[in-house]
């Protein structure tokens, strides 16, 4: 398989159970790497440095994000597609499409990223409306932060592209109608995943108190 095909159209060769297992490994790995640095994948498209939580929460967040989109796309595919596609292909390839998040998690562990991120957050805390924040000094940490942010954006774009390719290939849909339905489903899945992850944290807080 050519490198470009492997990176941008892997579903030509990989789908079904193999994609599901590889994808789930990727989601778990991203969650575990994230848990070591407080990096939450708290939504279909979200990556945030957040509060500390048990390690399993980071992994579960990834699985909630994956399932929110995969299940909604399954419904969308059934509505739009004229072909008899298998659910496991869509679920598996959607899981595999989240692999760029492993790269994101690794990139965020770059030295200096969290230091600058924390300094940036501190400069914004307690800011009154209209007040100009005093930005932290843009040294080596700032450069690392900038590069990692760019990489996060690239990985998120790459992931969305893979999500679309998975939907388009598995359900055999293309054209404006399919793109429109994919975007609507993506937005709905983002809202659903945020809601479910919010519920998870609410449950954790209730259990802790």
């Amino acid at each position: 398989m050519k490198t470009t095909q492997l990176l941008f159209s892997p579903f030509h060769r990989i789908a079904g159970g193999g994609a599901l297992v590889s994808g789930m490994v990727g989601i778990g790995l991203a969650g575990l790497i994230g848990s070591a640095q407080g990096l939450h994948f708290d939504g279909v498209l979200d990556v945030h440095v957040g509060k500390k939580a048990p390690g399993w929460v980071f992994v579960v967040e990834g699985f909630i994000s994956w399932l929110s989109l995969a299940l909604l796309l399954l419904v969308a595919g059934r509505l739009l597609s004229k072909t008899a596609f298998r659910s496991i292909d869509l679920l598996g390839t959607q899981a595999l499409a989240r692999w760029p998040m492993v790269l994101t998690a690794l990139a965020c562990s770059a030295p200096g990223f969290h230091r600058y991120s924390h300094a940036l957050m501190q400069s914004l805390v307690g800011l009154k409306p209209g007040q100009v924040p005093s930005m932290p000094a843009f040294g080596a940490d700032g450069i690392v932060f900038g590069l990692v942010t760019l990489l996060i954006l690239a990985c998120t774009g790459w992931m969305v592209l893979l999500m679309w390719k998975s939907f388009s290939h598995c359900c055999n849909v293309r054209g404006g109608k399919a793109v429109g339905l994919f975007i609507i489903t993506l937005l709905l899945a983002e809202a659903l995943s945020k809601l479910l992850i919010g519920r998870l944290f609410l449950l954790l807080e209730t259990a802790a108190s």
């Binding site: 030509h12 060769r13 990989i14 079904g16 072909t83 292909d89």
Partner: peptide
């Protein structure tokens, strides 16, 4: 053909 199931399905379509 060493391709995925959906690829064959789409080719058949």
């Amino acid at each position: 053909l060493k391709v995925s199931y959906p690829t064959v399905r789409n080719r058949l379509d």
